[in-house]
Design a protein around this nucleic acid. Sequence first.
DNA 1: AGGTTTCGTTAGAACCTATCACGCAACACC
DNA 2: GGTGTTGCGTGATAGGTTCTAACGAAACCT
Lengths: 217, 217
Amino acid sequence: MVEPDPKTPRERYRAQVRAEIKEHAWEQIATAGVPALSLNAVAKQMGVSGPALYRYFAGRDELITELIRDAYQSLADTFREALAAGADVAGLAHALRGWALADPQRYFLIYGTPVPGYHAPEDTTRISSQIMATLLDACAALTPDGPTTPLGAHLEEHRDWAEGHPAPSAALHQALNFWTRLHGVLSLELAGHFAGMGLDPALLFAAELDDLLTRRV
Amino acid sequence: MVEPDPKTPRERYRAQVRAEIKEHAWEQIATAGVPALSLNAVAKQMGVSGPALYRYFAGRDELITELIRDAYQSLADTFREALAAGADVAGLAHALRGWALADPQRYFLIYGTPVPGYHAPEDTTRISSQIMATLLDACAALTPDGPTTPLGAHLEEHRDWAEGHPAPSAALHQALNFWTRLHGVLSLELAGHFAGMGLDPALLFAAELDDLLTRRV
DNA sequence: AGGTTTCGTTAGAACCTATCACGCAACACC
DNA sequence: GGTGTTGCGTGATAGGTTCTAACGAAACCT
């Protein structure tokens, strides 16, 4: 979580204040959503006056970008740790849901409503690739080989996003299925659509995961 | 689209101005997202001064709520018309994607990132039920009968959201699958995640739809 | 035509982001 | 340890937002 780079005392202090700002920002986002994130309110919480924060972040947009970056990294770490702990695809799915439920707005920061003009910085797409790579690892272990599906052929042609991952096309297809389907149920759960219908989100998620595992490709 | 209720000239004018305000609001949302929607900017576009709009909407929140209502209604109409034109489940899926691509932000207004504190008004949930009812119609026609899945049992117990729709549990399950899976691929497409990976969203959507149709429950 | 309702205006309060110039404290170097 | 430089926090300021209040004018209804 923390950067072990306390070169000068100044950088040390700076990193600490930046972290504290982000901490308060996460709190605001979790309770009222991204639109309600206010630099002024964060400053007030820290007992400091508004413009002080501009020493640490160029503006509101840069702070949000940083939070998005951290969200990506947090998910990548969660996946990596789960896989290192011996989790299979189902374990990864469980880790994903737990991570999302811990802070729904953090999930939506990555996979939620996009801002039309916004373009994510380069490194977030790199971290995103790491996430997919972890998922590919698990899928390749689950599906060592399989028939190439029609979509698998397309994925084979455009496997740049796999970044040289040596997974067969069946694993590519399955990883994509996991991603899109789990996102489907999970995002609807986090948005409260199932609760509004009197359904149990955990059951829907489990059923979708089970379908993915038992009826793979 | 228009309400044929021009009782008094005043109400007629009022409805027209409200519609014009919403028109400009949609434009802003489509180009810059909901957070960028500004009553002031709308007023400026209409050549009128800021507070004038408060005669027509109690505030920014009520305007957004009205837009959400219209979005729900628009999707419900699209589904209803598609079904009336003889569309099956695949036709509904195609209609859904077309409707979403026509204005992605409108789709996200319904199925996108939720605002933590916000609770949708009663009638939007009613329109939402109409949408699900249309989907259930199509699914019941496609799957006249089938084995009750484990999840189907749960859906059978909590079929309030079907609002008395006489569909078998297999159809309930399939309708839910359609919803969650198409939302999964569609929302990721609209958010640009596939484009960032060099994948063809149309192919992914078609593949998921094909899987839903050929390997149903 | 008169009375009432409704509309659009300007003024203003309370927020927000963001920039600037200033004073001061902390660090770094000698 | 003193001195110079760097960085930090401040208040002031500009321009943006939502939203309320009071006023004048226009349109409607009777």
